[in-house]
Amino acid sequence: MARSYTEFDNLTSNILKCAYDVHTKLGPGLLESAYKECLSYKLQTLGLFVEKEKAMPLIFEEVKLDCGYRIDILVEKTIVLELKSVEALNDVHTSQVLTYMRLGEFKIGYLMNFNVSSLRNGIKRYVL
């Protein structure tokens, strides 16, 4: 069953609240893995279905290739979260999120860089 816009709005609102909470409590400067574990935990405490390091196979024609692509966090089997802790986001990070969205046919994705003083400056939303 397809999700309504209201369900997506509520889901993305909860994701962003959790991300801001994690960033507020931990601050910038940690490894990506620390933010991933804490954000996953926060999302799960809300009762959301969370998959960490979700394998994303590449299907080319009739061949399924296990190339080692992994989504950092997939929420409710619908929203891709790609987390970073880098000096600055660049085009390859954007391409990564968009590729995961396209391969998995996901409509919404977030690229989150936790290595910023204000998380507002580290979040990019993508919609296909």
Rank of each mutant, 00 (worst) to 15 (best):
M1G: 10
M1E: 10
A2Q: 13
R3W: 13
R3E: 06
Y5A: 10
T6I: 11
F8K: 02
N10W: 11
T12Q: 15
S13I: 03
C18M: 07
V22S: 03
H23S: 11
L26W: 05
G29V: 06
G29D: 07
G29A: 08
G29M: 09
L30I: 02
E32G: 11
S33K: 13
K36Y: 01
E37K: 11
Y41I: 06
K42F: 12
L43G: 01
Q44E: 14
T45Y: 00
G47R: 02
F49W: 01
E51T: 13
E51V: 14
K52V: 12
M56D: 11
M56L: 15
L58A: 14
F60R: 05
E62H: 09
E62N: 12
E62P: 02
E62Y: 04
V63Y: 06
K64N: 11
C67P: 00
G68L: 06
I71S: 03
D72A: 11
V75Q: 00
V75S: 00
K77T: 07
K77S: 14
T78P: 02
I79W: 05
V80Q: 02
L81H: 03
K84G: 08
S85F: 12
V86F: 09
D91I: 08
D91R: 10
H93V: 07
Q96T: 04
V97I: 06
L98D: 02
L98M: 14
M101R: 08
L111M: 12
L111Q: 11
N115K: 09
G122L: 03
G122S: 04
K124N: 15
R125Q: 08
L128P: 02
L128A: 08
